[in-house]
Structure formats: C-alpha cells, structure tokens
Design a protein around this nucleic acid. Structure first.
Lengths: 145, 145
DNA sequence: TCTGTGGGTGTAATATAATTACATAACGTC
DNA sequence: GACGTTATGTAATTATATTACACCCACAGA
C-alpha cells in the first residue's frame, strides 16, 4: 500500500473536477511516481506495473502522457525520466505555469518551483509556449558530502 | 564547402589556445551543426558524415561529447538533438555560464543567451552544477504565421 | 434494443537514441 | 624500440519511444 494516499486522493479530486479520467493504470503509475519521490524511468515503471510480466511500452507511455498533459507529473528531459508533480492541487495545473526542477544528483530527489514570469532576456518578440528548466547539483543536505 | 568557415576558424583558434584537439571528425561535425543553423539529430549527423555509408554511432557521439564538453555545441535535451554554440569565441566557454535556448518550433531555428546569474528561487542551500534551460515557442518572424 | 462513436487498453512490431566492448592507429616520451 | 595516451573503427547491444491494429466498454441517439 502506498504511503501517498493523500496525494492520490487529491489527484482523484483534481481530475474529477475537470472531467479527466484517472483510470486504474494512470492512477497506479502516478502512485509509483509519488512513492519514488524522485525521477523514474519509463521502463522501470513498466516493470513495476506488471511484476508478473508483460506490460508493454505503450501502456506506460500513454499513462505518462496523460499525467504530464494534466499537470500531475513532469518529464525530466535531461534524464529521460518522469516525476510526480509535487505542488498542491489547489490551483489549475494546466495553465502556462513554468516549472523549475532542482535535481540533486547525490540523493536523487527533486525539488520543484512554479514560477509565473517569462524569461527576462528572451529575443525580441519571441512567444514562449513551453519551457524546460532543470537545475542539477546538490541539495542542502548533500552539499556537505 | 561550408558557408561558416569564419566560425570554424574561430573554433580552431579557440581550441588551439586551450590545448583541445579539433580533429577532422570533430571539425566536420561542428561544421554540419553550424551549417544546419538549428537542432540536428545525432543519426542525421551520422548519415551526413559518411555519405557513402557506414559511420557508426560512437563516431558521432564521441565528437558531440567533445564539442559539448568544450562548449562549442549544446545538446537540446527535449529534442534529443544538438546545436552549435552561437556565441562568439572571445570568452572561455568552459565556465559555469548558463545557456538559455529559445527554439522556434515553426522555423526550427535556435536563439541563444548566456546568463551569468543563479536561479532566483532555488531551494535553500541548493548548489547548481549544471542547468538545462529551453524555451519553445515562436520567434518574432513566425509569431505572425 | 440496436447501433454507432469515442476513449481507453492490449499486443506485436518497429523506430529512434545512446552505450559498451574491444581492436587499431597515431603520436610523443623515455 | 617499448610504452602510455588519445583518438578512431567496428560490431553488438541496450535504452527509450512510437506506430499500427485489434478489442472493449460506456454512453448517446435512432
């Protein structure tokens, strides 16, 4: 049983309010991401989905697409991995919020910030539709190591 | 013949000054990137490297590693593609400068900004060692389309 | 009740991206 | 000449992701 029931319940409500269907597969993938508390590879999710055997790639990639589209998860581009969205579910995640990820390469945890401003020095006239912002380094606890 | 001879000569000098060896393969890959003027896939570089046939993945990935390590090229993480560094070669590229890429999804060009500051709202004590910042959208010329 | 229709899933095959492992070559140094 | 270092060639493999097609099911309208 997950220790993140609370988060999943919140996701459930979040989806219900918006007509998104958080099916068993999708919910299970989100649960795996939440429990991991850090970046997880798609193929590891696949393995975890069907311990006995045979979940296929599309199963997990479809779930991940749904979760990222809905704002419940993020892709960590430079790692080809995925992570649950950590912010609370009180606001609409489908907006154009920009997510910044702070990834500790030492303890493999992710810290997340949502910012609401555009880049300060974009080229004249450039209209941003999507942004990828990832910082790699060491979190406060690992700086000492 | 490349129309970017000037850039390549500058790269040549840049490497000479720093004891980096810009070998023919590496130079050729850089040339392909410069000529493309936008993100290029590793396997496309492979194909272009040996028109007659059989360049293998390690050839191009090794060259790309050298170029990115040296600051002469960047990986566009969210596209699994690579692009030549567009800034001038007057300063040391191996520092901890942060590169911001502005990628126009319409005309497939990349604009580049080097910034010298840390993220404003990093978690307390987080020490950044590497950052990935990519903005996708439409450049000024394509906003109209 | 029948019959579409659309969203979601199962499965096999394939495409795309990147690495490993090992052999060879080129070059400088002792 | 023997050796170490750096770069390259080549084959095989691993890792990541998509396509295509079949099936199921809930639901709306005739």
């Amino acid at each position: 049983m997950s220790n993140a029931t609370h988060t999943l319940d919140a996701a459930e409500r979040y989806c219900a309010e918006r007509g998104l269907s958080l099916t068993p597969v999708r919910r299970r993938v989100l649960e795996l991401l939440v429990d991991a508390g850090g970046p997880v590879k798609a193929y590891d999710l696949m393995a975890a989905l069907k311990p006995g055997g045979s979940a296929q790639p599309p199963t997990v990639y479809r779930a991940l697409n749904f979760l990222t589209r809905s704002g419940l998860a993020h892709k960590v581009e430079a790692l080809n991995a995925y992570t649950a969205c950590l912010c609370d579910y009180s606001h609409d995640k489908s907006g154009h919020d920009t997510v910044q990820l702070f990834i500790c390469e030492c303890c493999d945890t992710i810290n997340e910030r949502h910012i609401h401003k555009s880049p300060t020095d974009a080229p004249e006239g450039f209209r941003v539709s999507r942004s990828v912002i990832e910082y790699y380094g060491r979190c406060a606890r690992c700086v000492a190591c």
